[in-house]
Amino acid sequence: MIDYWLEWMPLLWKGTVSTAQVTVLSAALALLLAALTGICRLSKFRLIRGLALVYVLTFRGIALLVLLFWIYYVLPYMNIELSKTMAAVLALGLNYGAFGSEIVRSSILAVPQGQWEAARALNMTPAQRMFRIIFPQALIRMIPPFNNLMIELLKASSLLFFIGMTDLVYQADVLRGLYLQQSTQLYATLLVIYFILASMISYSARLLERKLSAGRL
C-alpha cells in the first residue's frame, strides 16, 4: 500500500497543485462577481438591478458542465480562444459568482435596519454607508455560507477533467491505466486528498471569521 503511494505521489502532487491553483483563481473571480452583482441587486436603478438578476438566473440555471463545454469548445468558433485554465476559471467563476451573489445580497439585507438609519443620520453618502458601515458587518455573516460555497467550488473543479485539465482527477485517471488492480486504493486516496483540501478551506474560514469578528459584539 505504502509502496503504491510513494509511486503515485509525484503525479498526485502535480494534480493537487493544479486543482488548488484553479480553485483559488476561480474563487477570486467568483467572490468578485458575487460582491459586485450582490450589491447591484440592491441598486436603486431598475436597469442595474435587472441586469444583475439576469446574470444570477442565467448562470445558476445552466449546468456547470454545459457552461464549461460551451466556453471551451464553442467560444473558439467566435474567435475567442481561451486556454484550459482560463476557460475553467471563467466557467467556475461565473457559475459560483451567481450563487455567491445571493449570499451577498441576503447578508446585506440581514444587517439591522438601525445601522442604515444611523449612517443616514450621520449624513454619510450612500457609498460611505455601504462600504464603511453595512458591508463590513454583512461580511461576517457571509463567511459560513461562503465557506460551503468554496467547498462546492473545490468539488466542482473536478469537472475540469472533462476538458482535459491536468488536475487531480486527470492524474488519477492516468494512474488508473497503469495500476488497474489498485483502483480502489487509488480512488480512496483521491477522495481523502479532496477531503483534506476541503478541510483546509473550512479551517481558513474559521480563522477568518475569528479575525473579522474580533472586537465586535
Binding site: K155, T184, Y194, F195
Partner: peptide
C-alpha cells in the same frame, strides 16, 4: 461530512471502477 466534502465525480469513479474490483 466525508461524502459532502468530496466531489461527486470522484465518488462516481470510485463506485464505477473500484467497487467491482474490491
Amino acid at each position: 461530512e466525508f461524502v459532502r466534502n468530496t466531489p461527486l465525480l470522484v465518488q462516481l469513479f470510485f463506485l464505477f471502477y473500484a467497487l467491482p474490483l474490491s
